[in-house]
Design a protein around this nucleic acid. Structure first.
Lengths: 111, 111
DNA sequence: AAAGAATATAAGTAATTACTTAAATAAATT
DNA sequence: AATTTATTTAAGTAATTACTTATATTCTTT
């Protein structure tokens, strides 16, 4: 699987506020399709389609357990793609690293 | 200007291969609209529209000098938004930092 | 086995996006 | 001042996307 094709799908997937929200929800916990849909105004099929887009981009993975389908994040995909591209655009990714460090420290202070 | 509105526009802007390519070109040098258009198969107006999208997202800035319009990157917008969102999704942004380091080393080896 | 619940797929539609060519604007050259 | 060059704006269209409701599938419960 070419990384560029994956990058295409990841950025496509991220270009939607509901989908970015879904990823943020899944950052904290594994959730069923119904759990996720309950957090949105839109219909369940609409949420289901968003989940498909995210799964096809390799950002999340689904697992059917009984009646439910649980979704969880694959954090590596996101970080690899974002860094991979940031690397192309921000030489040596220095700003990205610097910013990461600052934010990590802030969170350490807060946590 | 709310950061969330900017985030929306940035991710929207990044969801296009030609636009990501434009940013990569501008990472290395300031270029005129014509210089950029020459690197693509599509028409000049099409490229011009892509440049508008990128500029409205705060990712690039334009400056008219004589007959030409030069574009250059605003790297901070990209790193701030990508990190801001990665922060929401990847707790403590640890993976992001780790990946940055790996990629930076790879580039050091290659360069 | 029938009914109910969770989810996905199908089919249709409205809104958005990414192009195209043609026309307008503005600066440089003759 | 007229022409050429660089770029953008305008207008139209084809393709894509994001929803909707209705139907199908798969599990659980009775």
């Amino acid at each position: 699987m070419p990384i560029s094709g994956l990058m295409e799908r990841v950025f496509q997937a991220l270009a939607s506020t509901p989908r970015r929200k879904i990823l943020a929800y899944l950052a904290h916990a594994e959730l069923s399709a119904g759990d996720i849909a309950a957090r949105f105004e839109m219909s369940k099929p609409a949420v289901s389609q968003h989940l498909s887009v995210l799964e096809n981009a390799g950002l999340i993975v689904s697992e059917k357990r009984g009646q439910f389908v649980f979704y969880r994040l694959i954090p590596d995909t996101l970080t690899n793609v974002l860094n991979g591209y940031a690397q192309e655009v921000c030489p040596v990714s220095r700003p990205l690293k610097a910013e990461s460090r600052v934010l990590a420290e802030q969170q350490r202070e807060e946590g």
